[in-house]
Nucleic acid binder design. Sequence first.
DNA 1: CTCCTAAAGTTGAAGCTTCAACTATTATCG
DNA 2: CGATAATAGTTGAAGCTTCAACTTTAGGAG
Lengths: 161, 161
Amino acid sequence: MNSENPRWLDANQQEAWRVLVAVITRLPAALDTQMQRDADMTHFEYFVLAVLSEAPERRLRLSTLAAEANASLSRLSHVVTRLARRGWVSREPILGSRGSYAVLTDAGHAKVVDSAPAHVETVQRLVFDGLDEHRVRDLARIGSVLVDQIDKGIASGTGKA
Amino acid sequence: MNSENPRWLDANQQEAWRVLVAVITRLPAALDTQMQRDADMTHFEYFVLAVLSEAPERRLRLSTLAAEANASLSRLSHVVTRLARRGWVSREPILGSRGSYAVLTDAGHAKVVDSAPAHVETVQRLVFDGLDEHRVRDLARIGSVLVDQIDKGIASGTGKA
DNA sequence: CTCCTAAAGTTGAAGCTTCAACTATTATCG
DNA sequence: CGATAATAGTTGAAGCTTCAACTTTAGGAG
């Protein structure tokens, strides 16, 4: 807030911000390009399948899955519909509670297993090839701070006096 | 490549990757939410205007602008059309050469100046509040490596032996 | 000069995400 | 128990991005 007295970025921050914007713009595009080409799906769809494949019984409540996949419930619902249409996921009601599960089918699991190697190789090339162990830990630490701050809240507009 | 012998991620890499995916998914969403609410445009549109506002004569060839804004020429062309419709940008032919300029109008410049404070405050809160100067430099360094690697090429499919 | 090949942009369609409104189900409180 | 509020999820429309095809213009090669 406080549009009359903004905390402008200093030189280091400007540089970091420029680079960070480049990463958050180009990395998703690069991941999508690879996944689209090699597995005929988006990176987000792959990520959803991957999260499910690691969940107990390969199933997760939709709202939980949305949170773990960093998505809105609406976005997730649409995606689950698409994945269900392809036979990779199915919806199941939750007995004795409200809501429903997204369940990874065998075909869905096979699809993840099949797509993983090329994906992992891409991640290595795009991200980890240039980072030693020390930098990898720095990345995780810095990223965690950002995620926490993003979670705290986007809000607090400027309030424009 | 090499799908038969993939270089799997080790524990540190997995952790860093999980966090990085969260950042590249949630940060753009958070930035868009703020810009949409406070300035009625996407973060990408704002970024395009901001890049133009810092260019000599507030103008840039479309393909150059696309590169600086981390976008495809097609995406940029669509966005320039929208920004032109709003009166913030105009297209001008380049004399003695092919292609055309995107030029920031006075109204466009005013819009950037107006939207900047709230945007900067958001960036501070979402990104820099939790990072000391040292971490900011780490972020820039690590990000640069990623951008370079992404530039090198998405390609190189699995190559499937 | 003329052909032609590549660079620069544009455009429409298709697909994905967001937004807001809506349904359904379940706690909670009186 | 019954009303009400809150949680979980769905859905259609609108908007943005991608993809591929197409137009236009410029720099050669012969």
